[in-house]
Design a binder for these strands. Structure first.
Lengths: 365, 365
DNA sequence: TTGAAAGCGCTAACAC
DNA sequence: GTGTTAGCGCTTTCAA
């Protein structure tokens, strides 16, 4: 049988409350009894039952983390940062992966509440309205992550600014014909990125015609559809993808098709996932401050948890992304569009010699 | 105040046990009382307190997962698979990231036990001996993941076989001069991969001289050190890296330096992380059965949890990896070593025309 | 400085 | 069918 505070007390010849005092240093014990208790604990290999303690204290020192997935690098990093910070602050992480299922997400939140978590960090995937409704019946503090919810606590990236950064970068490089690989605009974060991107472009007197926008689910497949853009006339000289996975899909298709990045075409992503740096050339991208997001969200939640009644008013923390300029973008070549074109699946290199020659002068010199 | 089973009982005009029976369907209730209870629950927005229930039942339906990190794709996928399967089986995941700190890992395990988890899934990072010792004082079932521990339950990849698969692939492609980018052999998994690799090579009458082995921590940096191998004479025509991250480091350095993969050099990785497929050319690699590992580990643990006293004897489940042949490997070119060499940081292409010509026949035809 | 007793919210005999 | 009662293992007044 597992040792309890009673069995320890009995062996030490003291009362259970004395053992409790010893454990929690909530009353001074005589050196003799302290030693007795200590020995009894060691002898029985006693470990406090946190479940029982939590029941009594009405506090579990645990936080629920609900997230669509953790294999995607962005969410994975956020989850990792959260767990780390929570552990350091003495909280256990109860992880729930919703797998982008609204039903699952809702039942996970309900379950966590039932488990008496002290708070919840939520990257929701359901409708904003539905989430808000669910929360009315919930008594524990919730901090929304990577989603902004009015009148609630939330921490997220300034996606609008991110879009603007990307646009400004491409525009100042001289690009005038720009294509867009964008996720579904129903996703708020995506919509904001596009909005920011287009607004900033307009400041440069530019715009992206509808034909130059490829839309779909934000995954690798969407990136591969860059072929659609490559057939347009004039061909875009730069691409903005609303996340790095999409950008990598495009990058891959371009490299496979014999295009040279950034000489033939520049490409900007969003997120700055770890892979982006590995590519050759590495991807220029708008870096989400994922560490800051996770860290700030935990801090905010713990504040809330510890606030008791003196809760501060809802707060939407919006953190600025930063542009990571790397090898996948370059100034527009003078002389306009080169001779490359996509013909079915295979590129036909109508070599314009002058261009091929000037590649990587240092290796050919 | 939060609703309890008592407050519900009072409102419904019944005894607390009746409410409990209603909740757990542990006794038939008359339709009338059932409805009463139901209404009271709804009126008070009552949710069962799982902490209290768990205390009473001495079962928490929770499993601790301790893992070195989750941002590395391999561990991330394993963690994700586990959480999913655990959730489906009705268990909550308590996530602990050890960040490769043995002390932290140990205290996390202790903490989980204190929280009365029903079992632990452990990818340990400390010494095997230390872990084994810790476990002696632990009463909950533990399943080791990605590590083999004699006389304990464990699930892992057949790393030895993985090494052999890589070797056989390269050898049958005709490669004779092969380099190794290997993690520290003190890591058991790494040692096994190398062992298997070299054993299989010997069957082909081949071996890897010490000079052709670059050793270090398994990260991107190690891969970049492929430059050391490229300066050897004869230059290796193929490389085996003990994981994909290292392989990608090498891949990157090769591409940057103007080498063509697989024409100039073939490269094989280990793990099959998602990125590997994105590269151009995509990486040939030994795929770990990460989904199977995670799934099997959960099944084994749940069996153990539910077994009670009829525990089955310790079992080391070893799952076979599979070779994913992709674009980064190709048959050795006849004519032996080509003329490339590393001169400082930049490669000098002493083009041997016959080789350049036959590249990618489909695009040149 | 230590102990007795009550109770956190729940379940499960066992009566009725 | 339903209620009474006794804990699960812990903390915490309050008294001694």
């Amino acid at each position: 049988m597992k040792a309890t505070i009673r069995s320890v007390a009995k062996l030490a010849g003291v009362a259970p409350s004395t053992v409790s005092h010893y454990l929690n240093q909530t009353a001074p014990l005589s050196a003799a009894t302290a030693k007795n208790v200590e020995q009894a604990i060691a002898a029985l290999n006693y470990r406090v039952n946190l479940g029982a303690r939590n029941l009594r204290l009405r506090k579990t020192n645990s936080i629920g983390v609900v997230i669509p997935n953790i294999t995607s690098p962005f969410f994975g990093e956020i989850a990792a940062v959260m767990e780390n910070k929570l552990w350091e602050k003495g909280f256990q992480t109860l992880l729930c992966i919703s797998e982008r299922s609204p039903e699952r997400e809702l039942s996970q939140v309900a379950h966590l509440v039932s488990r008496q978590v002290d708070g919840i960090l939520l990257v929701y995937c359901s409708q904003k309205s539905r989430v808000a409704e669910t929360l009315k019946n919930i008594s524990v503090p919730v901090v929304f992550v990577d989603r902004r919810v009015p009148d609630q606590y939330s921490v997220c990236t300034d996606n609008f600014l991110g879009g603007r950064l990307a646009a400004r970068h491409l525009a100042t490089l001289g690009h005038r014909v720009i294509g867009l690989l964008c996720g579904e605009p129903s996703v708020e974060n995506v919509a904001e990125r596009i909005e920011g991107f287009e607004l900033e472009l307009r400041r440069f007197g530019l715009e992206v015609p509808e034909a130059y926008k490829v839309k779909g689910r934000q995954d690798l497949q969407l990136g591969l559809r860059i072929t659609d853009l490559l057939q347009l006339e004039p061909r875009p000289t730069a691409i903005f993808a609303t996340n790095d996975i999409v950008a990598i899909g495009a990058w891959r298709k371009l490299v496979e098709s014999g295009f040279r990045i950034p000489r033939d075409i520049s490409i900007v992503g969003f997120d700055d996932i770890a892979v982006s740096r590995f590519l050759v050339p590495p991807l220029t991208t708008v870096a989400q401050p994922s560490r800051e997001i996770g860290g700030k969200a935990v801090e905010l939640l713990i504040d809330l948890v510890q606030a008791g009644d003196s809760v501060k008013p809802p707060e939407n923390v919006i953190l600025a992304p930063t542009l990571q300029v790397r090898g996948s973008t370059a100034p527009l070549k003078k002389g306009g569009v080169d001779g490359k074109a996509i013909d079915g699946r295979l590129p036909q290199k109508t070599k314009s010699v002058s261009q091929h020659k000037s590649r990587r002068p240092s290796t050919n010199g």
